[in-house]
Design a protein around this nucleic acid. Sequence first.
RNA 1: CGGGGCGUAGCUCAGCCUGGUGAGAGCGCACGGUUCGGGACCGUGAGGUCGGUGGUUCAAAUCCACUCGCCCCGACCA
Length: 576
Amino acid sequence: MRWSKSFIPTVRETPADAEVVSHQLLLRAGMIRQLASGLYSFLPLAWRVMQKIMTIIREEMNRIGGQEFHLPALHPAELWKESGRWEIMGENMFRLRDRRGSELCLGMTHEEVFTAIARHELRSYKQLPQVWYQIQTKFRDEPRPRSGVLRVREFIMKDAYTFDLDWEGLDRAYRNQYEAYCRIFDRCGLKYLVVHASSGAMGGQESAEFMVLTDAGEDHIALCEACGYAANTEKATSRILDIADADGLPVPEMFPTPGVRTIKDLEDFPGGAPADRQIKTLAYFLDDQFTLLLLRGDHELNETKLVEATGAMHIRPAHPEEIKAALGAYPGSIGAVGVTAYPILADFALRGRRNMVTGANRDDFHLRGVDVERDIRVTKWADLRLVKMGEGCPQCEGTLTVRKGLEIGHIFKLGTRYSESMGAYVLNQEGKAVPLVMGSYGIGVERVMAAAVELSHDAEGIIWPITIAPFQVILVPVNMADAAQRAAAERLYTDLLAANIEVLYDDRDERAGVKFKDADLIGIPIRVTIGPQKLARGQVEILRRRTRAVEDVALETALTRIRKIIEEETREVLAR
RNA sequence: CGGGGCGUAGCUCAGCCUGGUGAGAGCGCACGGUUCGGGACCGUGAGGUCGGUGGUUCAAAUCCACUCGCCCCGACCA
């Protein structure tokens, strides 16, 4: 490709509203442009990268027996009503009506449609297992699109679905996908982590996320260096030290705490208590049921765990006025002692604790000497706590650190969640109808591209892993006005093309500095420079973007050498 | 949805607080010239409904109201 004929609109200055590195660099490299909030156009350079990623994905999916489909993005509402997700997805789903008034939605994911195909067509265990996938656009009306291409409302996802007769089959399918994912991300040159995850709105039993560690990510991952435990904090558990409580009072005692509203206030208040001796009381509505949630004062609620523990579909914190009406006090003075009218969920960390301090349900008063199990009618104990940096690993004696991660892939063991709700059954060997056991597996294509940028860039621009780079080689004659340089460049260009090497030929009539800056910015792994001095000696210069290592080679042997370097670079991507 | 911020040339921004000078700068773009291995220099030029609507005023980019859009921080997910 000749640069002079290409559309590669690089920009010098970083656009003001780009915060994360991948957003800034993809914009500056002339790869993406924003159309509206959460909607991006992919320009030719970006599309080349995405196609390479998709090719790698296809190869690995096909390798494990995957069969590629292409399903509609527009779905009838009935399908989603059958699975129950028409309600669950709420505002995140784009909904519309056709001219006859029928309800439709834009697909957020494709469990429903694939299951609908499966239930019509799969009848016998003899047809199993099946591994189906597609690479297709998904629509999600995100409450807050952000970080460039990382969180958007329309994106390309590779989604795969497996159908098996039984759980052993699903385990195998899941394992295959897991390994395929590892190969995909390895080949894309990403350094990633596999973490235990919550399955959220997808439902199902077990799930794992593929994460790239970067501050641009939105997830928090708890890691143990000692044993390798890694979990999304939505799911993570931890070991915390037992606290030995002194004997308390025979009965809780109310005391005035004027102005005390927070855990911190009460710590500082004379006669108060350290955070780990306080009971934090939160009021939530769980599907319209007012509920009290109890945690240790220094612990934070994990809403994902709350949803999983209760099965609630919609949760929200209660408003101050609602709390006042229910308990007789405003937040800051509420507690669960003596409360019988509402369910009370308590975190395991409060079990057996005595001599605690909590709100008295009277503004500006607290209770001391509270023995949790004696004084509070807990309806359910659960793990509700968000793990924190520095707590103990749940699997070994190590310590957890918490780091930010970007989710690039997620695999789920769905089980029979969809096959049962949507009636996808096959006959087994005994002639008995059994629900298909399903798995679902997703990769965000744009995120893979952005993650590569987040992980691999420098002050000058992007450094693409050669496996997904838009071009393998960029050829830059330093001065197009020099006939000798131009002739040499044209010849090498023709040779590279003939050798099937992906080359971007910077034939623009620009100064060398401009070309070098642009080459660095768009991140082509191998730069071949043709300049006056070296050319006079019959040589060209080869520079590697990542290491900046430079070597001069004879013009005649350049092609061979470049081929060799491409092989080396490719090997290095896989080795990293 | 709650909180914060921003909309002036293709891009980055100044001007606004304290209304009134011919709406500006740098970069980019076009043309001419000199340059030519790390975003060159000189000259000339094109380019704007100051996000939109309404209002206040003799006078609005500037003040007020409404509205649209975008970004960032918190609850969702590839």
